[in-house]
Design a protein around this nucleic acid. Structure first.
Lengths: 183, 183
DNA sequence: CCTTATTAGTATCGACTCGCTACTATTGCA
DNA sequence: TGCAATAGTAGCGAGTCGATACTAATAAGG
């Protein structure tokens, strides 16, 4: 058994165990993952196609998942006027509380050695980056780490979308993000 | 966004992306994961309940998954005479080739810094261990790392099941495994 | 300006997983 | 011997999955 197979098995299993007992009342793993993404994404990145891209599934499947979440009252639809094809989703109050449930994975991490979690985060980030590059996938990083991000006073600015960013937004996820040179 | 949430998101996403394009001809992620487990498990650990335990699902679901795999010719059923409740599954030739398909996750790992993959494996193992302890889950480690494992000549021995082990078997996964003191 | 290509979202199909409950068969235990 | 525990399975309803096909809106090119 090679090391890469071992690591692949570990990631797969941890993800499954986490998903299995992460079933909150009436949310399945995919719905919870979509909800978690929406909670972190900025206002330009909350469309069905973005969530689908992020989670590696299709627009069709994600469209249904989001409709299910809406039906249950976790998110609300917001159609765009500028581009009438575009649909965005916002979390409701119910949705926000659902993303903050305690889970064994995070609890285990919080009692772990900080040096270990640091190197874990770095290794996983690098791994994902490599996989995405091979797959032409998007990074979905934070604005603050993006090539299009410009600091400014009083507000930061996105060169690509030509909009100024609230300070909270600089640490949200963007589907257009292109990682700046990383160590 | 806390670090533990970041790591949880990373693990979840890597697992999904890996599963998404790991769809071989007619195997879905769960079927592939079950097949991968069966390929690594020893002859005492290939029952539906063991696979279910390993993947964090239920006996009912796994029973169906295994029936699907059998129907497609990837595994074959093997009923026990000693305990007539017990059912075991073996991989067919078709099943063995299916577990050896190249995938972006392993390819990314193989081109990574060995020091990083070492620390990644260690961190993920520790994380899983901690989660399982909180959940009373089984470790599913290899015989060679088990408290019941005794070296011997010419064959190693399992103190719990009272059987001697082929050298190949000492590095297979066992559902009864109890990790020996780990660094 | 008008045609064509592209994009975003959705509905529908069949196969399957998911948790759940209920049931059978076998074994273990008192 | 009887009763509890265990292993596997069938069936239910909800939902994901890939695939395909469709509509509506926008973009691009002549």
């Amino acid at each position: 058994m090679t090391q890469s197979l071992k690591i692949r098995t570990l990631i797969n299993r941890i993800g499954r165990i986490d998903a299995a007992d992460g079933w909150s009342d009436d949310l399945n793993p995919t719905q919870l993952a979509a909800l978690g993404y929406l909670a972190q994404a900025n206002r330009f990145s909350r469309a069905p196609s973005h969530v689908a891209d992020f989670l590696g599934t299709t627009r069709g499947t994600m469209s249904q998942t989001l409709k299910a979440l809406e039906r249950k009252g976790y998110i609300s639809e917001l159609r765009s006027d500028a581009d009438k094809r575009y649909t965005s989703y916002d979390l409701t109050a119910k949705g926000r509380t659902a993303t903050r449930r305690p889970n064994p994975l995070e609890e285990a991490l919080q009692t772990s050695d900080p040096a270990m979690t640091d190197s874990l985060e770095h290794a996983l980030t690098t791994l994902l980056q490599t996989m995405l590059k091979a797959n032409m996938g998007r990074a979905f990083g934070q604005c603050i780490d993006c090539v299009h991000f410009k600091t400014g006073t009083p507000k930061a600015y996105c060169d690509l979308l030509s909009v100024s960013l609230e300070s909270k937004e600089t640490r949200q996820i963007c589907h257009e993000q292109k990682p700046r040179l990383v160590s």
